[in-house]
Design a protein around this nucleic acid. Structure first.
Lengths: 245, 245
DNA sequence: AAAATATGATGAGCGGCACTCACTTATGAG
DNA sequence: CTCATAAGTGAGTGCCGCTCATCATATTTT
């Protein structure tokens, strides 16, 4: 019968085509549900052909993710360079990370749940690029510390961990496909928390709290009531909202 | 030949033995490197026997982790109840989580890398217990907000996410077996950052005398509070089941 | 005590899937 | 046209989680 042999393509082109298909299949099905047989079929080749170009399924995912990640980070530095001020830059980093996750949850799930737990992860360029990525955060904080804008008594790594860990924890539910989140709102809140937490106290703000409350009892009371009111409103409105993790 | 049949054990006992062995094997080898054949061999039964008691390998891990987690959280509430003050309680929660990871990285790796990414996760008691666990954090922050100790303008969930996400991010390297960390030092730094970030500014810091009316219009706030109070009175009495979202 | 019932335990075997390899065929340089 | 080279093939292998017909032992019944 007509042994429908496929066209012979140059190495580069065939690799590109396989990776393109693989990216889609991985994204849609997740790593373990994605079958090499399906990738091969959709790419119009036979299973064995994939192994001519990639040592295995894992390596294929790694290559796919690496390519995606380089695309993501392409114009990153450019955007960051334009921004002025610690707060704006910090917010951009956080917002950016949140937005990447929001825009391509499938790919991020692969990175968080699969790639990052493999032993190969460390020799991946994804690992290197991520380090580079988070190094910017450390730099910004460092510079703010040197300028006296931020306190110097907290380890920088902790700050970075709370930012990136916080972002990921916040997006879990969304990544499981069970809810949504707002990159803008989350970035605002996280930036605020970090900024306030690190801000060096101004000289005139060093008054003991007790004296301050004495000086303005009415305002302090109002402040308290306002807080209570907000809380009650939130809990009343939250009853219908989807449950958090 | 001597067909060396194993002793017949009561259902409960056999299950316990299998789970005990499985816990060790999973911890040592990780999920995918752990073979049901090895678990069976070490438990002194044949592979098929495992499937008399557990629907599959995944479910076996789930049961093992559930049992472990219940053990971990046993005296948790007790310890927390003793502590006084937002800061001390917050620090305890953070420190506790860090310490659990430090003491049993193998088990935590299984939870973080395997269990939590499976679809079954949500119907696991690990899921429920974790929610309970993190709910305490929200409660503590909430109470501090009500007391006026913390600001009310940041979403509580974000705070929780930054704490627990930060903890996990901070312990990654250790969980990959490539370094160490200090639960005490990390807990101090994280508590400090969160506490400072959330601390309500003293009255005179928030409301400089000259611009008090501008910054915090007392009249508007009073009207607003009155409205909220009326609304609450109307829908009053009923279930105040405020779900910490 | 013997028979009947219930249930713990077996182990050969199956199905799915990543991966291999001896072999085939298109391509392009000489 | 010829032949070396590299692209592509597909039947086959090994691993591993999981099943099921069958057996054996403890417990209950008569």
């Amino acid at each position: 019968m007509s042994t429908k042999r496929r066209a012979r393509l140059p190495r580069e082109r065939r690799m590109r085509e396989i990776m393109q298909v693989a990216e889609q299949v991985f994204r849609d099905k997740g790593y373990s549900e994605a079958l090499t047989a399906e990738i091969a079929a959709r790419a119009g080749v036979v299973e064995g052909t994939i192994y001519r170009y990639f040592p295995g399924k894992r390596e294929l995912l790694i290559r796919v993710v690496e390519q995606w990640y380089e695309r993501i980070l392409a114009d990153y530095d450019q955007q960051l360079r334009v921004l002025q001020g610690t707060r704006a830059r910090l917010r951009f980093l956080i917002w950016r990370h949140l937005t990447v996750i929001h825009n391509d949850p499938g790919m991020c799930r692969l990175i968080f749940n699969q790639l990052r737990v493999w032993p190969e992860y460390r020799r991946t360029t994804v690992f290197d690029l991520t380090r580079e990525y988070t190094r910017r955060t450390l730099e910004i904080v460092q510079q703010a510390v040197e300028r006296g804008e931020f306190r110097a008594d907290l380890p920088l790594r902790i700050v970075r961990d709370m930012i990136y860990g916080g972002v990921e924890h916040h997006t879990w539910v969304y990544l499981r496909g069970e809810g949504d989140f707002s990159p803008d709102a989350a970035a605002d809140a996280m930036t605020e928390l970090v900024y306030r937490g690190l801000a060096a106290p101004a000289a005139d703000q060093l008054l003991p709290t007790s004296r301050a409350a004495e000086a303005f009892p009415a305002e302090a009371a109002l402040q308290r009531l306002e807080a209570v009111a907000q809380r009650l409103e939130q809990s009343a409105g939250a009853r219908t909202v989807h449950r958090a993790e």
